[in-house]
């Protein structure tokens, strides 16, 4: 934790951006303003402004119209933030049993304010649950049963809290099947398994891939999309296994 970046004070917003840059670099090898804007849900111009600030602090290198790369120092800072994010997400998801989307969103907010000591404790608790004398699964199962029992009366409150103001599409998962011709989006998650999953992966429909819905077949079933610069058709049954994030036009 005590890296060179520790003395550096970044605003929440800048922390989010540098984290997004690292995620993009890991996913695609490089980061582009367009992708960062899509991932953080803001306009390209605000991304550019933020990147400028990060560049001034010597965390990234970014000349206009080129890819964003992290400096040695920037990479370390970003890794630290991303680690916090991952630890928090896995704690919320694995221990508290909060569903992944909500866990992600909360981790995004907590990561900026949590002290490293508290985080480490949470982390220890998480690993303790795994090796607890009671048996990891039993412990978690009992807890989740208890949660269910307690929450059964007030199930809606959770969702309301999960909704930060102006977050757009909300918690409802949108699948590729629901997308209309002319819309574009990004793959978030693949829910199929076995052969279907493998085929979708092989054809380049991996999480993070951009796509554009070209058309629906005359009889209304297979849909045609453009992904990675080529045309692909898939049945609605398969499309409904793909959770997507629609892009604003």
């Amino acid at each position: 934790m005590a890296g060179r970046g520790k003395g550096l004070k970044l605003s929440q917003r800048l922390e989010d951006y540098i984290e997004a840059v690292l995620v993009q670099v890991r996913q695609h090898g490089v980061a582009r303003v367009r992708d960062i804007a899509a991932a953080t849900n803001v306009s390209k111009s605000s991304v550019t402004a933020a990147l400028k600030q990060l560049a001034q602090k010597g965390l990234i290198e970014h000349a206009p119209y080129e890819f964003v790369t992290l400096t040695e120092r920037g990479r370390e800072v970003a890794k630290r933030i991303l680690r916090k994010h991952n630890l928090l997400t896995s704690f919320l998801f694995n221990v508290l049993g909060i569903d992944r989307d909500l866990a992600e969103k909360n981790a995004c907010r907590i990561e900026h304010v949590i002290d490293s000591k508290v985080l480490e404790r949470l982390n220890l608790l998480a690993s303790y649950t795994q090796q607890c004398p009671l048996g990891a699964n039993e412990w978690l199962e009992r807890f989740s049963a208890y949660v269910k029992q307690q929450e059964s009366g007030m199930s809606t409150s959770k969702d309301e809290q999960a909704e930060p103001a102006g977050a757009g599409a909300g918690d409802k998962q949108i699948t590729l099947e629901q997308m209309k011709p002319g819309q574009s989006g990004k793959v978030k998650k693949i829910k199929a398994d076995g052969l279907t999953r493998q085929r979708l992966m092989d054809m380049g429909l991996t999480p993070g891939a951009d796509f554009f819905v070209e058309r629906v077949a005359p009889l209304g079933d297979p849909v045609e999309i453009k992904v990675r610069d080529y045309h692909l058709s898939l049945r609605k049954a398969e499309a409904s296994c793909i959770i997507v994030e629609p892009m604003e036009q």
Binding site: Q27, H28, R32, I190, R197, M201, D202, T206, G208
Partner: peptide, 22 residues
């Protein structure tokens, strides 16, 4: 949060996109 197969495919495509963008 994803199956290992997905992660591997995603990283492979990431490796390719990285090379292609350059």
């Amino acid at each position: 949060g994803d199956a290992a197969e997905i992660v591997f495919a995603e990283r492979r495509y990431g490796f390719i996109s990285g090379a292609c963008t350059e």
